[in-house]
């Protein structure tokens, strides 16, 4: 019983911390992204937002915001002494899915920029695509390692069938 309590306290802290960190990243991106859209629509080349070394993305910000909210709701669910494994899993799997997506985008970006030399990539830097992966990876990775058994199905050898 004592051990159960500990695990759930542990998870409560993890969910809150993960959620808040993602929340900061998400809100920053959304606000910067909004400025960027504004600057683009008014064609303000000189706007300060364009001085940031990567283009902020409002939609990516929203996606991260939702992951953060899933964890946050999970935190409150644990506070009510209910099972929040689902919240932990869904948030983490969504985040991992986005990391995979951004890795894919990074690879295609590098290909587009260097191998194909596309025009759109004149001002592109590796950092612009890489930063998502750097921002997003630590927490979901940590959750995946720490709570692997809750998030993923264990690969047991099905002995009964092997014979």
């Amino acid at each position: 019983m004592e051990m159960l309590k500990n695990t759930s306290n542990n998870m409560k802290t993890s969910l809150l911390a993960g959620s808040l960190i993602f929340l900061v990243v998400a809100i920053t991106e959304v606000i910067l992204g909004a400025f960027k859209i504004y600057a683009d629509s008014k064609e303000l080349e000189e706007h300060w937002v364009n001085a940031i070394p990567f283009p902020p993305g409002i939609f990516t910000g929203l996606a991260i915001l939702i992951v953060s909210l899933v964890w946050l709701v999970g935190y409150f669910v644990i506070k009510k002494d209910q099972n929040a494994n689902g919240y932990l899993s869904v948030g983490t799997i969504l985040a991992l899915g986005f990391i995979l997506l951004f890795i894919l985008i990074l690879i295609t970006d590098i290909f587009n920029a260097y191998a194909l030399g596309l025009e759109d990539y004149e001002n592109w830097t590796v950092l612009a695509s890489l930063r998502w992966i750097i921002f997003l990876s630590p927490i979901p990775m940590f959750f995946t390692i720490k709570y692997r058994d809750l998030i993923f199905t264990r690969k047991k050898k099905t002995s009964a069938l092997q014979s």
Binding site: L69, V73, G86, V90
Partner: peptide
């Protein structure tokens, strides 16, 4: 699956997800 469903069909989170 049931636990995941509770999140994916959550009143506020379902549609954003």
């Amino acid at each position: 699956s049931d636990l995941v469903d509770k999140v994916v069909t959550h009143k506020w989170l379902g549609i954003p997800i």
